[in-house]
């Protein structure tokens, strides 16, 4: 119902030619703003917006906002941390991680259809959070993605986060697949 209304309002905004063609109804704007706030305070940028070296040291590369581990940055084999209690390592971009779970890369959260969340429905986002499975139905989501924090968010907050992530500029960036700690070869006997 609310969807129909916002759709109508959007059409009205377009046909009347008032303001920009993108003008979103106030309820949607509020939702997106709340989502932006949540994504910021929940620290999603920490891992999903790559760091670059700036004049004052590492800073988030906002031209790649929330687009995950940069496709062009191919990581060499992870260092072996043999001296416990050191247990895991991360890239300078804060987007690639190596630990007992293997190597994981922060995902592209922008609305790009092929490489980001563009093809996801809100229901799939909810399913991913509740099941803690990759794409809502695959393998378990890997560390250090704080999935348990998202699981503690209310439905309203999850809606806002998803709406915000769908509103930001799409960045085409294909994040590599994770790597298992010890790949098992195909049995060829």
């Amino acid at each position: 119902m609310t969807l129909n209304r916002s759709f109508l309002l959007a059409i009205l905004g377009l046909t009347l030619g008032t303001g920009t063609a993108q003008a979103a109804p106030p309820a949607q704007t509020k939702l997106v703003q709340h989502g932006a706030y949540l994504v910021r305070v929940a620290g999603c940028h920490d891992c999903h917006t790559p760091l670059k070296m700036g004049p004052k040291g590492p800073e988030p590369d906002m031209s790649r906002m929330l687009s995950g581990h940069p496709e062009g940055l191919q990581m060499p084999p992870a260092p072996k941390l043999t001296e416990a209690p050191w247990g895991w390592a991360g890239s300078l971009t804060m987007t690639a991680f190596s630990g007992p779970w293997g190597v994981s890369y922060a995902a592209n959260l922008t609305p790009d259809k092929e490489t980001g969340l563009g093809a996801w429905t809100e229901a799939q986002f909810f399913q991913m959070v509740r099941s803690a499975r990759h794409l809502g139905q695959g393998r378990a989501i890997l560390p250090p993605m704080p999935i348990q924090n998202l699981q503690a968010a209310s439905d309203a907050d999850l809606k806002a986060i998803f709406a915000y992530l769908h509103s930001i500029p799409a960045v085409k960036n294909k994040v590599p697949a994770p790597i298992a700690p010890a790949p098992t070869p195909i049995p060829m006997h």
């Binding site: 293997g102 499975r133 393998r139 298992a180 700690p181 098992t184 195909i186 049995p187």
Partner: peptide, 25 residues
């Protein structure tokens, strides 16, 4: 490759099984 794997990242299907289905592979 993914049918023949039971490492948690690569295995297919991703759930409901812990042993490779060797006859199927």
């Amino acid at each position: 490759h993914r049918m023949g794997s039971r490492d948690p990242i690569a295995q297919m299907p991703p759930l409901g099984t812990v042993r490779v289905d060797q006859a199927a592979v």
